[in-house]
């Protein structure tokens, strides 16, 4: 029975199938919202009001011609999209969504899983860098370098911001953190600064405007993705979508009190909370213009990092007061 449950957990919910379906839905939501903010219609034809458009795009890309550059290392070039997708799908398994007993640690929920998720979310960035570097195209290389430069900007603020709720909750386990804030929801009010720092850093991690510097199409063509096409590009796009779901799921867990209440209520909470985070991401995307890489690093260290440290300080004080 446990084996079947584990298999279902890995493959159906919240494993590959659910993450695939839900990430395409999230992409549709993002695109539609972005379009409506810009007074456009957005995806309209595929499925009811275009809801199947991301799936259609994915399938279309799967059937497109797949080209590997002559000078590129074929193995690495081809395996990177799959590795990237596998990493973010793995990260998705640690979200405390289902099959979690708060009192008993298990293979998908243990002390320190918040760190594991954070590091798993850092790996796709490395994959993107390697993809850019191994494309042997100048624009890709420049994109890859920009990916890494940006990583130094947003990674520290993101870690500090996400970890400060854990300090108050006195646990490194996502399920316990969520459970703690279920019991004391008012404590979340002290985490507002951290929430916004985390959202902005997630925006940078997902490489969306104003941080779409590594694949800025008007500057360096497709950046890291310049040489990618067909199936590989489809996997990379899916990877970004899943990363968006997992990232917003992580923020929803630590800052918005998780998804308790069994299978159905938990799922409903998960959808509402992640969509809320994604809506904020879309709004930021629509309201800004792309900034330069030097401006991005300055912004991160001048505003994001001090704010994250401030949040850490607040968390420590709050913790002291509670005890």
């Amino acid at each position: 029975m446990a084996v079947i449950k584990a298999l279902i957990y890995l493959l159906v919910y919240p494993g590959i199938l659910f993450l695939f379906v839900y990430s395409t839905f999230c992409e549709w939501f993002d695109r539609k919202l972005y379009a409506r903010l810009q007074n456009r219609i957005g995806p309209a034809y595929t499925g009811r009001s275009g809801i199947l458009q991301p799936v259609a795009d994915f399938l279309k890309l799967m059937f497109k011609e797949d080209i590997v550059p002559e000078n590129a290392d074929r193995t690495i070039f081809s395996s990177l999209p799959v590795i990237g997708l596998a990493i973010v799908l793995t990260a998705g398994l640690y979200l405390p969504l289902w099959n979690i007993n708060v009192s008993v640690p298990s293979f998908n929920s243990f002390q320190g899983d918040i760190i594991v998720v954070l590091y798993l979310l850092s790996l796709p960035t490395l994959v993107l860098f390697l993809a850019g570097w191994h494309s042997t195209n100048f624009f890709s290389t420049l994109g890859g370098v920009r990916v890494l430069t940006m990583l130094f900007g947003y990674e520290v603020p993101l870690f500090l911001a996400v970890l400060s709720p854990a300090i108050v909750a006195d646990s490194w386990r996502l399920a316990e953190i969520a459970d703690f804030y279920q019991k004391f929801p008012f404590l979340l009010l002290f985490q507002i600064i951290g929430f916004f720092v985390a959202v902005v850093a997630l925006q940078a991690k997902l490489e969306r405007t104003p941080f779409d510097i590594p694949h800025a199409e008007t500057e360096i063509v497709g950046g890291t993705f310049t040489e990618y096409s067909g199936k590989k590009l489809a996997f990379f796009r899916l990877m970004t979508d899943v990363e968006m779901v997992v990232g917003s799921g992580l923020i929803a867990t630590v800052f918005l009190a998780g998804f308790s209440g069994g299978v159905f209520l938990g799922l409903l909470k998960f959808i509402l909370k992640t969509l809320f985070v994604i809506a904020i991401l879309s709004l930021i995307k629509a309201a800004c213009s792309r900034i330069r890489i030097d401006q991005m690093v300055i912004f991160s260290w001048k505003y994001l990092a001090p704010l994250a440290v401030l949040q850490l300080l607040i968390s420590i004080i709050v913790k002291g007061v509670i005890q």
Binding site: L33, A35, R36, L37, Q38, N39, R40, I41
Partner: peptide, 8 residues
Amino acid sequence: HLFKRPAT
């Protein structure tokens, strides 16, 4: 513009 009719 979020709840307005699209221009397109």
